[in-house]
Design a binder for these strands. Sequence first.
DNA 1: TTGAAAGCGATACCAT
DNA 2: ATGGTATCGCTTTCAA
Lengths: 330, 330
Amino acid sequence: MTIKEVAAQLGVSPSTISRALAHPEMLRAETRVRVLETVERLGYQPNLIARDLRRQETRLLYVVVPTLSPFFLDVFRGVERGARETGYAVVMGHTERDVAREQLFVDQVASRRGDGVILVTSSDPTALKVRTKRMPPVVAALEEIKGLHAPAVRVDHHKGAMDATNHLLALGHRLVAHIGGPEKQVIAQHRREGFNETMLQAGLDPTAFPYLSGDYAVAWGERAMETLLTCNPLPTGVFAGNDEIAIGAIRAMSRVGLQVGRDISVIGFDDQRIASLYEPALTTIKVPTEELGYRAILLLVDKLRGNTAEVDIVLPTSLIIRATTGMPRG
Amino acid sequence: MTIKEVAAQLGVSPSTISRALAHPEMLRAETRVRVLETVERLGYQPNLIARDLRRQETRLLYVVVPTLSPFFLDVFRGVERGARETGYAVVMGHTERDVAREQLFVDQVASRRGDGVILVTSSDPTALKVRTKRMPPVVAALEEIKGLHAPAVRVDHHKGAMDATNHLLALGHRLVAHIGGPEKQVIAQHRREGFNETMLQAGLDPTAFPYLSGDYAVAWGERAMETLLTCNPLPTGVFAGNDEIAIGAIRAMSRVGLQVGRDISVIGFDDQRIASLYEPALTTIKVPTEELGYRAILLLVDKLRGNTAEVDIVLPTSLIIRATTGMPRG
DNA sequence: TTGAAAGCGATACCAT
DNA sequence: ATGGTATCGCTTTCAA
């Protein structure tokens, strides 16, 4: 069913059909009604591909996330909210932290299937073919992309990590360990640096416990905590690189009869949904995920509208005190 | 940068460029190398919109999920695996259980922005404009769509609910209550029916406790359990409509000092990731989510290849016994 | 092996 | 207010 067939049915020209749909005010009321009725009756839907080609825009935006964790979904939620407000449709692709797949989605947009793309934490940003390939309009969320001059909306992981560490120190902890996320990931690095810096400022040795760097999974948290539990003295406070690691650490503790918040305090990062659901509820650093996505898409739409400013928004984190941190024993 | 410009640069025709990219074997080796080098150097990427229009296919598939819960993401994961195997790209849209938004994505595909779409649990399937609007190739996942003759790959919720209830009965429970999900949702209905039927078969009254129907959130589980805790006698076993409800129920119990698995047994449904992470780990019914998505996309691709068989695949669930169910006290 | 040209379906400019 | 038509960028048939 094409626009021509509808036009033929009505004995009008394709232009009239097109106008009835896009600029109804241009038609005589009678014509408009007649056309729209027929369109409805025939169930005609314009071929968007043809329209996109002609208009040179799709009003479709892509969001690319590294994993399907609840964390990124929250970001996506914010993006969708902004998309609705600005009249864009948005679809999501996920890369499983595989640069090739990330490139695939970027290429989809570069090849005009979308008007722009939000990259939420490029896995290994430097691997993106920003030089050889044409880049579509991009906004980076959560982390800037090196070598790419794209607006970014980020979170101050460094500051968040300092807040987390300071919370532990303020409670009186002196034996504090850090369980880090993926070593190569910029975010994980910032968090570690925040920890190191705070410890140093307090005159404490950030390397008093083994260097622990893994991924962002519960299993890693468990293994890392097992390592810490072989230390003498034991740490009294643990700053986990994210909530999942924190949960893993707590699990490892309870297996040997240690109680979190009393024997050892644990603080996470992100404030994922599970953080408040877990028993006991996790003390953590809240990352404004939804807001992040929302800001990112507004930035993108702004860019598409011709605004070329090099923006770099940094959103604040906040400390959420729940039940897994307390004063050190004795 | 269009194909013409590249062609002009090289002094060949656009056809040659097109062939170098799509059917390299048709070109003389020398020409091919020359073209591909230039393409690479200029960073030329074909306009997919134009290609799609000409080829009348996109090799892009849509997946539409109602919410961004981990449950549906698992389904999406399966879809992606199948897509990679069959050479399709996949994007995801989510509807927040809003039919209008579901329609929007279906329309995207009907309007040729994609070749087909997988609908994971249409919110209110009957509301989809299957009559007035042209429907693109559709496969239903998790739940069939009434009024739409689409292949479906589903899960036997009824049987799963019977297994859940029977597990409780086999442990010796006689005072068993059900906390249901959204009343209007087909899935929730099937689960309740499975519960009712099993109770009846065992000579027990499925309506001995208040009729509880809400949504699939933790908060609802808490409220529902608070209601149950006002009953006399208390239930000794609770079959929750999904894992989140189960967690809510357990939280309500612990607030009044009741221990799950000992004072009251609770079984969930879905086996979401949180089920094994929770403390204590949830006894539940596993839904093969990833498999569901995988089967769905294979079905869709099959359909796109011209196979018109009316398939209806039903996947089995399985009982996962963990720590929240035990024998009734005394 | 390569080139010329038609055509995919819609839109928007230029006429009338 | 409506119609005719060029055009978007690519693919593919037909011809050479």
